[in-house]
Design a binder for these strands. Structure first.
Lengths: 217, 217
DNA sequence: TAGATTGTTAATCGATTAACAATC
DNA sequence: TAGATTGTTAATCGATTAACAATC
């Protein structure tokens, strides 16, 4: 069902965080950085950072630190963000619009090249420079312009249909923001994003801090 | 720095996922559900589900299953989503707008009651029914209307200042969508959301599936 | 050489998975 | 009673943390 178990997932998820900080340092002209400093600005333990960075295959200089540009390179290559990946977007609601307008994707090599929606009133509309097409057209469109990724921002009820269309169109990965579990062939990887998960975590932490008793009011 | 280690975090993050599915079942009139069926529709192992649900303190009937409304209740109570939590939003860019327009928050008891931005051209604008106020006004505003949560959707460069204002205003938790680590007092919990983390995971999984060689093109 | 940091190897901790007795 | 599922107890696996030798 498009599932795949891999190891070091927590480290992998932290890599973009390093990347942001390192790019900032690079812009500021910082050439070398050592773990203790990264630990301070990122609020992580030194050993976590060393282990995470080791994953990318980069090597630092004992007693000195890591070369910032080399580190950036290693992370970008490890995540395969060096060559841009193209994606199509299904569902131009508020979240879909936000993703279309998010300039940060350029940094990480993601390009949303087309957007689709099933609402006739949205079709033809231009959103952040892309003209919204009819959802039903995504299959034929992908035949003409094959892209490896699909992003699903439609309401839960329509998500499986959107996924089916993307799969039929030949995408290899789906980034799913809808609140449902999608069924796909084994060779199509689905990454589900549950925004509410973060809020659940925050909520429980606040409760614990409060002594477990009172709700958030 | 607003950090806090708690256990069973993976389970906690999965709870909203169950909640979505269970509410759907409830709407469809399903009164009882057993683990094997949940496992099928959610693409999780049975034992994972039993352990996760046990966390909420709910108890099922051996040989039968769980009562759906009871389960919903237990999760909602465990997450403290039974009483609505109010939040203010800092930064009405594309992501901020998306969150203001997201109807799903009502389901999970989150209410964004005010929105602030530092861009003069946005101040006074109405976004999804809320009038945008000047960022600098958030402190005084919070004095008049204390709320427990702040959401940060400003660009990275302004995030720490936004956090400082929220902390001064007395919020107890911050949901941070900016790409920086925030410094806050120990009793203010920060939940950082790194959207790119999911993309990193997807990217690595696709690479592994590909045999590790080729990039996403 | 002395000081600092890297990177390896081992220890701990917690999450996931398995097995099964208890229960409807 | 037989069949099914829950919930507990134990086993496995992997992530985090600690200690330290190697290196600049």
């Amino acid at each position: 069902m498009g599932n795949l178990k891999i190891r070091k997932l927590p480290s992998i998820r932290r890599l973009p965080t390093y990347l942001y900080k390192l790019k900032e340092m690079d812009r500021d002209g910082v050439g070398i950085v050592a773990t203790p400093e990264l630990a301070r600005c990122m609020n992580l333990a030194e050993i976590v950072i060393r282990k995470d960075l080791a994953l990318t295959g980069v090597s630092g200089q004992p007693g000195v630190g890591y070369r910032v540009p080399e580190l950036i390179d290693a992370i970008v290559r490890y995540l395969k963000w060096d060559s841009p990946a193209e994606a199509v977007l299904m569902g131009v609601g508020s979240l879909g619009k936000a993703l279309l307008g998010y300039s940060g994707f350029a940094d990480i090599g993601l390009q949303i090249v087309a957007a689709f929606d099933s609402d006739p009133s949205k079709i033809g509309e231009s959103v952040h420079g892309r003209t919204v097409m009819a959802s039903a057209a995504v299959g034929p469109w992908l035949k003409m312009h094959p892209v490896p990724l699909g992003i699903i921002c439609v309401p839960a009820a329509g998500a499986q249909e959107a996924a089916d269309q993307l799969v039929a169109g030949g995408v290899r990965g789906i980034w799913n923001f809808a609140n449902v579990s999608l069924v796909t062939p084994d060779d199509v990887i689905v990454q589900r994003e549950v925004i509410a998960g973060g809020l659940a975590e925050l909520s429980v932490k606040l409760g614990v801090l409060n002594g477990g008793g009172m709700p958030l009011e």
